[in-house]
């Protein structure tokens, strides 16, 4: 309940603190993280290929928005479907292997989609990205207005959060956590583990797809990076710093990550280097995410004063 109040407050206050575009990006990235965390936090599956679903949805929906002038809701629906279907294909190959093989496969299949996007320039624009994705008006609301679009994104984010909460509180959520805790026992008590992993993949892919479409409409372009490995790594990073152990972790992580990358990118063109340093610092010193980090800093400052 307290978490909900905090999130609602953040949704209302955020556009007064940062530009609406960045505020929108935070919630979009949070939706992306929610999808990953169903795999990473709940099922214990470290997918390093989430941008496959994010990017595929962005390209397909973006293309249709641009060339066929489809409506906003159709674009969202198509994005969710593309995210889910691409996750079904990738997941089918990945869930048959476990551990390190699984991680490597998600990355390798991500590369497959990346190189298709990279070379299929007539559709995707290759390295230049696919510009000119419109934000069509709906019910007389002009989404080109950044604030209107921010409200739209926020509502979808809250909806996603509610949906994800339903899922993790459902028997499926319990089963996935059971698989994370003990795969052999989950199989022995009667769950077909690969089937459930695949289901988690598809749901996570659908969330990624939704985030992908919203992202394309936010910036009006689908950059090649949207389907690249850095995007896959970023969402893992964001989820881990937020704390993969809770439903709200990816939301906190999205805040920290977008803030971090926005502020670093104005400092230096080679900011991925700083990001890499941040990754390593977090891993070596602040494992357990910001909640634990905050706790440590607080204790440290108490000791020094």
């Amino acid at each position: 309940m307290r978490a909900l109040v905090l999130i609602l407050a953040a949704v209302v206050l955020l556009p007064f603190i940062v530009r609406p575009a960045i505020a929108s990006e935070i919630w979009i990235f949070a939706i992306f993280g929610l999808g990953l965390n169903l795999l990473l936090g709940y099922t214990g599956l470290l997918s390093f290929g989430q941008s496959t679903f994010f990017g595929s949805a962005a390209y397909v929906a973006g293309y249709l928005l641009k060339h066929y002038a489809i409506g906003v809701f159709a674009a969202l629906g198509i994005g969710v479907a593309v995210g889910a279907i691409s996750a079904l294909l990738v997941g089918y190959l990945c869930v048959q292997r476990s551990g390190l093989y699984f991680i490597m496969l998600t990355f390798a299949l991500n590369q497959l989609f990346y190189f298709i996007a990279y070379q299929w320039t007539t559709v995707t624009g290759g390295e230049d990205g696919m510009p000119g994705v419109p934000r069509p008006a709906m019910l007389g609301i002009d989404f080109r207005d950044p604030v209107a679009y921010y409200i739209f994104v926020s509502v979808l984010f809250l909806l996603s959060l509610w949906l994800m909460k339903r899922i993790v509180d459902s028997p499926l959520g319990k089963i996935l956590q059971g698989i994370r805790e003990n795969e052999v026992r989950a199989e022995a008590v009667g769950y077909h583990v690969p089937r459930f992993k695949l289901l988690a993949f598809v749901i996570g892919g659908a969330f990624s797809g939704l985030a992908g479409v919203l992202y394309a409409m936010l910036f009006g372009i689908v950059p090649l990076e949207a389907i690249g490995f850095v995007t896959s790594g970023n969402v893992v990073f964001a989820t881990l710093i937020g704390g993969s152990g809770s439903l709200y972790g990816p939301i906190i992580g999205s805040f920290v990550f977008i803030w971090l990358s926005e502020s670093m990118s104005v400092v230096w063109a080679r900011w991925p280097l700083l990001l890499g340093v941040a990754f390593i610092v977090v891993v070596l010193f602040f494992r357990g995410g910001v909640v634990e980090a905050w706790d440590r800093i607080w204790r440290f400052s108490k000791r020094t004063t």
Partner: peptide, 27 residues
């Protein structure tokens, strides 16, 4: 060979649910 982070009830519930007659509302 149990589910260590789960409560005892959840450990057992998972097995009971697996073999229950219907998985309606699974999601």
């Amino acid at each position: 060979n149990v589910f260590p982070a789960f409560s005892l009830l959840d450990n057992v519930w998972l097995a009971a649910f697996a073999c229950s007659k219907s998985w309606r509302g699974l999601l």
